[in-house]
Design a protein around this nucleic acid. Structure first.
Lengths: 224, 224
DNA sequence: TATTTTTTAGAGCACTGCTCTTGTATTAGA
DNA sequence: TCTAATACAAGAGCAGTGCTCTAAAAAATA
């Protein structure tokens, strides 16, 4: 299936340069010198092509985060956490359209197939592993470990608890999820232009702003 | 210009039911019983129509937040903060397509006109006013008030500082911005389906999860 | 070589945003 | 009241989209 590979490569190029909304099957066909109908022998629909690109993007982001995290000494929990956050942000800035495809507004009517959930959770697995190490080494916030929460909150976080397969205290799971969401929210805000006229864009300003965020997130989890 | 009003009303209906991507000028024209070309006498382009809807959505969200916040006693800072957060989330859940339009992935090539920035900042003004009251009454985190930060971070937050027109300590401004972004990130995550299989969807579970987030955000700002 | 299978081309349908010219009401002025 | 100016709408048309169908060419197999 080498033709399918070429189609995907062309689609990747179009996605990176023009973005998902203007990704056209006919344009790809033109670029590859074939008819639009011929493409349909390898791609069942436009949504099918988008799914491939989504899986692609999740894997690229996940790999980027894994690489960055693995190059830090295992004992340096804060370093591992910071490297992961930085890798996520850097990948997003380098691949804005890919980021928008996976974390932007969902296309009405499109339902993500099951084979996207694996690649989609790679980054959270990295962050989860850091947290596990922190808990094992007793290097997380004491306050979160002992905070009592309502039964409803307990059950609301049951799905995540089972995914982690650990008996973390609920408050800690909740805080970790908050940090995770905050990271993605911050990156999305920067990427989607929502920080314009809010955070300066001078040399190093956005970097330093984000670095402060990372420090704060680590502090909120009590990682040390 | 009553016809333009009808066009906007029809566009609003289409946006609410099918979402922005499938908002078609021709469909609106059909619904109103006129030709597509006739619509162009009142709307210069599809982007122009989208801009109207964007301003509309910003105003609706802002009004919703203002109404909720203003119905809480002025001294109850945490109550005002919580009411604002809840109003944002409730509005988003009730108007998912409108939320996606203003806080989802930006349409490549579309540039938001200047008349959107006013309505866009209504919610942040509400949150900002709460913070101002908290600072005036000395009811914010002491730690944030005294934390020393780098010069680069100072200058990176200069745009926001000027918008607030207050001499807040940089660490406090930074933390407030983090909370603001976290709020939007959390709402977007819930709305865009990113919390599926992460946070339960049983009766009250999502509500309680979000309420815990709000409590945590207030704690991070030290509002009391 | 003949036959079957795989792949491609081409035409076509229904839809989109948008433009341009022509026609028709409606209004304003003489 | 009749005419001229104006405002508005219709229709055709262009270039593009996703997608489907049938017929033709190419490749693999018997």
């Amino acid at each position: 299936m080498e033709i399918k590979g070429e189609i995907l490569a062309a689609a990747r190029r179009h996605l990176a340069s023009e973005g998902a909304p203007s990704l056209s099957l006919r344009a790809i066909a033109r670029e590859l010198g074939m008819t639009s109908s011929a493409v349909y022998r390898y791609v069942t629909s436009r949504d099918d092509l988008l799914t491939w690109l989504i899986v692609d993007a999740y894997n690229a982001l996940g790999e980027s985060a894994e690489d960055a995290e693995s190059s830090v000494a295992r004992e340096d929990l804060i370093g591992r956490f910071g490297a992961t956050c930085d890798a996520v942000r850097r990948w997003a800035l380098a691949n804005p359209h890919e980021w928008a495809l996976i974390y932007g507004s969902p296309v009405p009517g499109y339902v993500a197939p099951a084979d996207t959930i694996g690649p989609a959770s790679r980054v959270s697995l990295v962050l989860g592993a850091i947290l596990v190490d922190a808990v094992r080494g007793d290097r997380v916030s004491e306050e979160l470990k002992n905070e009592r929460v309502s039964a409803t909150l307990d059950s609301s976080l049951e799905p995540l608890r089972q995914a982690i397969a650990s008996e973390f205290p609920t408050a800690l799971i909740h805080q970790a999820l908050m940090v995770w969401v905050a990271l993605y929210g911050m990156v999305s805000f920067e990427l989607f232009g929502q920080l314009q006229n809010v955070v300066g864009e001078g040399p190093g300003e956005r970097d330093e702003f984000f670095a402060q965020c990372v420090r704060q997130w680590a502090k909120e989890l009590g990682i040390r």
